[in-house]
Computed example of a mutant assay.
Amino acid sequence: IMSGGLLLYLKPRRSKSTIIYEYSFPSISNMLSSWCQYEALKYVSFPAATLFKSFKLAPVMAMGKMLGNKEYPQYDYVVALFIGLGITMFMSGSEDLEFGYDVHGEKASAAWTGVMLLGFFLFFDSFTSQWQSRMFQRHRDLSMIELMFATSAFSTVLSFITLVHSKELGPALSFVVQHSEIHLHFFLFSICSTIGQLFIFYTIKNFGAVVFAIIMTTRVLLSIALSCILYGHEVGSTGFLGLMVVMGAVCYRIKRKAEGKQLIRWQGIGDEKAMELVQEWHEHADM
């Protein structure tokens, strides 16, 4: 509804070359990535899940090679390697990753399930960004608002079909009716989500990807710190060192990307750069 309202208000040019089924692919992958992301929180801590998302550089590069035959600078591969090393150190120092069994013969740790779900999240999320970039490359008349609306519309329809098929539509509606206070939560969530995406687009278009990457990296650190303080997540010395390795690798990549470029770009980029905008958005937005 929110993206539809924006479409009517902003009235961007309509794409005449896109085929409607093309929007379904990023919609499905986006739904699957969201499910994996939230389901993983049942098995791993929020700091671990947040830091794990920093590794999305590797699957994004792999998917870019597969779908778009893209080339990446050598330092990206080195950064991805160090991020993976840092995440491994953090997970081993903060999560129970043992495969042992308790006295009842059940697995003592389910953290590996969370790791697997986060891996699927990275896969589906990287596919979403690369497919959308591919759409912008193939359809030069496609606007960001139209893509946002079409993807959201497909997600709404597919979510409805899923609820009906799984027989969860009735219980879901019953829950919404019985708990009227959730209406405000839904409304605020939709407003914040839509406005947040617009701010992301605006930041990348007007200030550049480097500034956006710095903001998102700072957000990761603050999110992990607040989660540890508020919910008592314990991070050992190995985990802390792993966190520093990941943040150091991310900051090094930001520095390399900023070389020879103006840090803050006050003049926005045009729609012809929409493919680059989507790439940067997916690379950092869920960190």
Rank of each mutant, 00 (worst) to 15 (best):
I1R: 12
Y9V: 07
L10P: 00
R13L: 06
R13Q: 14
S15V: 09
I20Q: 11
Y21G: 01
P26T: 13
S29M: 15
L32V: 03
S34W: 13
Q37F: 12
Y38H: 10
A40Y: 03
L41A: 11
Y43L: 05
V44N: 07
S45C: 04
A48W: 02
F52E: 00
K53G: 02
K56C: 05
V60F: 05
A62L: 15
N69I: 03
K70V: 04
Y75T: 09
D76K: 15
V78R: 11
V79I: 14
V79F: 01
F82N: 04
I87Q: 05
L97K: 12
H104P: 00
E106T: 14
K107F: 11
A108K: 15
S109G: 01
L118G: 05
F121D: 13
F123W: 07
R138K: 14
M144H: 10
T151F: 02
L158S: 06
F160P: 00
L163R: 13
S166M: 13
S180K: 14
L184P: 00
H185G: 03
F189W: 09
S190T: 12
T194C: 07
G196H: 07
I214P: 00
I214R: 06
I215L: 06
T218F: 01
S223Q: 08
S223D: 04
L230A: 09
L230C: 07
L230K: 15
V235T: 03
G236Y: 02
V246Y: 00
Y252V: 01
R253G: 02
K255S: 07
D271F: 01
E276H: 04
V278Y: 08
M287R: 09
